[in-house]
């Protein structure tokens, strides 16, 4: 397994994305958190969550399973809610790939996990934002398309994140996902997929999957040269099996 990671501040005053990767005999552990800009201390929240996840993983004799991943997310949530001044919050996407190439994950918020295989990109996690609720309501015919459209202006606002002191929504692997040689796992904050879009991410992966370093650089180049008026903090981790 090899990995590459990049971080880019974008047009923001502060980098509020934080991440860490630990590779040891057990496997490869990666965690990425995106501090919420709308709240104070977003960066501190994200850094704290990364530290809590990393320290938990480093403890001796732990088995990484869904219980570990969710319990750690809950600990980070409580810490941010009670231990950091002002209301702050962050997202988390955390993955563990064991020595048998089995992938496990937990996600709270709108940072994403993707798997790239055979030229195709697949989004694994859902975004826990207002759209999540609106889509459900639309499916259940609780709202019509017009109401969906009106409410959709606030669609990207998070409805679940670390720091709520009891987050409501999460994504988790209930069974490990078996990866194949050549698969690429991507953990990313919203900066990347909002600047590039899934189609461009897929294109660049298809073009550069042979060289992870070149691939990571090409992501950043595309984000830098995207024509968006404001570019969000962008951080991502690429792991190749």
């Amino acid at each position: 397994m090899e990995f590459e990671s990049r971080s880019f501040i974008g047009s923001r005053a502060e980098q509020q994305d934080h991440y860490n990767v630990i590779q040891d005999q057990k496997g490869l552990f990666a965690v990425l958190c995106d501090g919420m800009g709308g709240r104070k201390n977003g960066s501190l929240a994200a850094q704290s969550a990364v530290d809590i996840f990393s320290a938990s993983y480093m403890r001796r004799n732990i088995d990484v399973d869904p219980k570990f991943l969710l319990t750690t997310a809950e600990r980070a949530d409580r810490y941010i809610a009670t231990g950091i001044e002002d209301k702050s919050g962050c997202t988390v996407i955390c993955t563990f790939i064991d020595a048998d190439k089995k992938l496990m994950w937990v996600s709270v918020g709108d940072s994403r996990l993707y798997v790239f295989r055979s030229g195709r990109l697949r989004q694994v996690t859902k975004d826990h934002n207002y759209f999540y609720l609106l889509n459900r309501k639309l499916e259940n015919n609780e709202i019509n398309k017009e109401e969906y459209k009106t409410a959709g202006t606030r669609g990207e606002a998070l409805i679940s994140f670390l720091g709520m002191n009891g987050f409501e929504l999460a994504d988790i692997s209930i069974r490990p996902l078996a990866l194949l040689d050549g698969d690429i796992v991507l953990l990313t904050s919203d900066g990347l997929y909002k600047s590039l879009g899934d189609a461009d991410i897929e294109k660049l992966l298809a073009l550069h999957h042979g060289d992870l370093c070149v691939c990571a650089d090409s992501f950043l180049d595309q984000v830098r040269t995207s024509n968006m008026s404001s570019i969000d903090n962008t951080s991502f981790i690429l792991i190749k099996i």
Binding site: K67, V124, L169, D171, I172, I174, R175, P176
Partner: peptide
Amino acid sequence: SSASGNVEEIKTMAY
């Protein structure tokens, strides 16, 4: 492999 939704529900599924 994946479960998405209410934390208590996915806990029941996952654990």
